[in-house]
Design a protein around this nucleic acid. Structure first.
Lengths: 191, 191
DNA sequence: GCAAATTAATGATTTATTCAAG
DNA sequence: CTTGAATAAATCATTAATTTGC
């Protein structure tokens, strides 16, 4: 707004090097999401180095954090892509209970741990927790280095992973797979 | 599994950064409570990055979910505590970060954006309206050139330096920050 | 060397997601 | 099931780097 005569009317904040340095220092020191008070303080200090408003600080932290995460996700995705071809495919049955991961050594199958899913239970994934003390006779973990003494017998089609297919399991929505270097016209902004 | 004299014999799982990143990514994508099969797959993938067992994955998800909820609850509690500020106190001090920073001009904020939803209507239907140019009566930012009315109230450590020491101001102790990767980034245009 | 044209960075907005409360 | 609050993701838009032809 405010046409503001001839002189530079920067439509957006243009941070000075000092401001950027200070912001990055603060960020590196662990302040990722400043609250209003902190934004105020940062702003008033940075204003010594140039014109700045609170919203600039606020946006700076938002963007910086977001782009940090984005960068990390990209890197991660590349790594995962690298490993993806190492994996073989294998079919597995879908099991829904996570406590099958415990394999009680001898007996004691803890009947209350698997409280029979009602046919239309949405199973909101927040509340099951509670795990209820499975300890006692000792348990072994699948996939550990030791154990592995169980379940291979009764036609237990559970895990017995000889081969590991992994990635396609997860609902990776891959919002970060999107562009590969310059597909979206940044300058164009097709609107 | 012998204590292996020289090299570290960690009594507990010590996740690598890659493992943490992958786990967080999976979690963020919506898998909050993996079942046994999923744990198997995740484990075998993460084992490419370091020693890991299925129970580590299982516990990681348990703990992460729990701590997530705990964090949210704490935040929400704080928020509720200060919910009175609209009614009584007028200190915009220690609110969170986002909308406390906005000051709705005259609470005629977006009269047409939210056209009084009938009790069962989705109000996101007509979003082709393109937000209707919220400009004049939009919002203002604290700390701008115009409304520099805020100042440090009491509270807080408040370094309020006249000198420009900048860095000692903010409570930027980051003992709880663990990402040390090359997060500085900001490659070219750092200025 | 120098600007116009193009591309990459990044500031500023908008949209979708998430959790909890009513 | 809806709504409120906060935020992260996605997107838009503008500035700075850079390339390029002269």
């Amino acid at each position: 707004m405010s046409p503001a005569a001839g002189i530079t009317t920067p439509s957006r904040w243009c941070p000075t090097p000092e401001q950027v340095m200070i912001l990055e220092e603060i960020y590196r020191n662990g302040l990722k999401t400043p609250n209003a008070t902190q934004i105020q303080h940062i702003t008033s200090h940075l204003s010594l180095y140039g014109k700045i408003e609170g919203k600039n600080v606020f946006y700076w932290f938002q963007n910086h954090k977001a782009r940090d995460r984005q960068k990390l996700r990209r890197k991660l995705y590349k790594q995962l892509q690298q490993h993806h071809f190492l994996m073989k495919r294998h079919r597995f049955d879908e099991h829904n209970q996570f406590f099958q991961y415990f394999l009680p050594q001898h007996h004691q199958l803890v009947p209350q741990l698997l409280p029979l899913p009602s046919p239309s239970s949405h199973q909101r994934e927040g509340e099951e927790e509670a795990a209820t003390e499975v300890e006692g006779g000792g348990r072994t973990w699948l996939g550990g280095d030791e154990g592995r003494t169980v379940a291979e017998e009764d036609g237990e089609t559970t895990c017995r992973t000889g081969t590991l297919r992994t990635l396609e399991l997860f609902p990776v929505r891959a919002s970060w797979v999107e562009e590969e270097e310059g597909t979206s016209g940044n300058g164009g902004c097709g609107n």
